[in-house]
């Protein structure tokens, strides 16, 4: 493992009894990046994340985190913050007591009040956890993960249950933590969050990491679309296309060139392109193809 590699999983497989949740994942996370692990429901994201966190033992393959075994708590956990998919609180404790307890047990120190202010919970420091809403508990969970600015932070669906403004505020803090030098690994169901904030994205389906790369790399391999209403003589169009009753669709890797060619062709023939639209490919387009494209499995 080099200085720039924080996580390396090779041939990672994880089973629950006879059910194999992760089926041979190879994954590398570099120091200082935000890596988003996305996927369909039941794709194995959380199992992969929990194995990288040291909560689960791999059935096969190797996992190296911060240069060691993630299950070596004494050595690794002071350098690693974890936000679980579901909160694990003792309701009788106050917010600040819980944060300080987890911080102390993790071997890290920080100012909990400053962190609570950053996520908009400054007035909840002395409130018992069983009196907080679900969204507030998620933010407390987030604070525990970033407490003490660990080198590596795992965030499992950090914004689930948060309102839009709380989501925005939380992402602001995530970016601050990254700027301070932490590496962030997260899962989310909000594709637009991954598009906006992640440096690299891994897409999982059925226990397999099907695609991985930056947003540009992922969507670049996916065709953009030009659409317009059908018209008399559309068959003569010199660009590959498909038509249904509603719209004609041209899928292209060269959106600008093909759009210019289409407009020129239509102008030369006096054709009006009703309901014309041109859209670059998005992460959602790539995501939709996940189930369809099954790579060969090891």
């Amino acid at each position: 493992m080099t200085n720039t590699t924080v996580i390396r999983a090779t041939g990672l497989r994880v089973s629950y009894g006879s059910f194999e949740a992760v089926k041979g994942v190879d994954l590398t996370v570099r120091r200082g990046e935000i890596y988003a692990l996305l996927g369909t429901n039941g794709a194995g994201k959380t199992t992969t994340l929990e194995t990288l966190e040291g909560h689960r033992a791999p059935t096969a393959g190797t996992v190296e985190v911060l240069g060691g075994d993630p299950a070596d708590r004494k050595r690794i956990r002071p350098r690693m913050g974890v936000m679980l998919q579901e909160t694990g609180f003792a309701g009788e404790l106050t917010t600040i007591e819980m944060i300080e307890l987890v911080g102390k047990l993790s071997g890290r120190s920080d100012d909990p009040q400053r962190l609570l202010e950053a996520v908009g919970l400054a007035d909840k420091a002395r409130t018992r956890l069983d009196q907080l809403s679900g969204g507030q508990k998620r933010r407390v969970d987030f604070v525990m993960a970033i407490y003490g600015s660990p080198e590596l932070v795992f965030l499992d669906e950090p914004t689930t249950g948060l309102d839009p403004s709380a989501r925005e505020a939380l992402w602001g803090v995530v970016q601050d933590v990254r700027r301070a030098g932490s590496t962030i690994v997260l899962t989310t169901h909000y594709l637009e969050e991954a598009e906006r904030h992640a440096d690299r994205i891994g897409l999982m389906h059925d226990g397999v990491l099907q695609r991985e790369g930056s947003l540009a790399e992922l969507v670049g391999a996916h065709p953009s679309r030009i659409r317009f209403a059908p018209f008399e003589g559309v068959e003569a169009l010199p660009l590959a296309h498909r038509a249904d009753d509603e719209l004609v669709t041209i899928e292209t890797a060269e959106l600008q060139d093909d759009l210019a060619a289409l407009l020129g062709w239509a102008a030369a023939r006096g054709v009006r392109l009703d309901r014309l639209s041109a859209t670059s490919s998005s992460l959602e387009d790539v995501f939709r193809t996940l189930g369809a494209a099954q790579p060969a499995r090891a």
Binding site: R73, K74, R77, G88, F89
Partner: peptide, 17 residues
Amino acid sequence: SRRQNLFLKRMRSTAES
């Protein structure tokens, strides 16, 4: 109770044995 509300799992996310 501590297992049901995932408090045990939370504790295992720390450096404590």
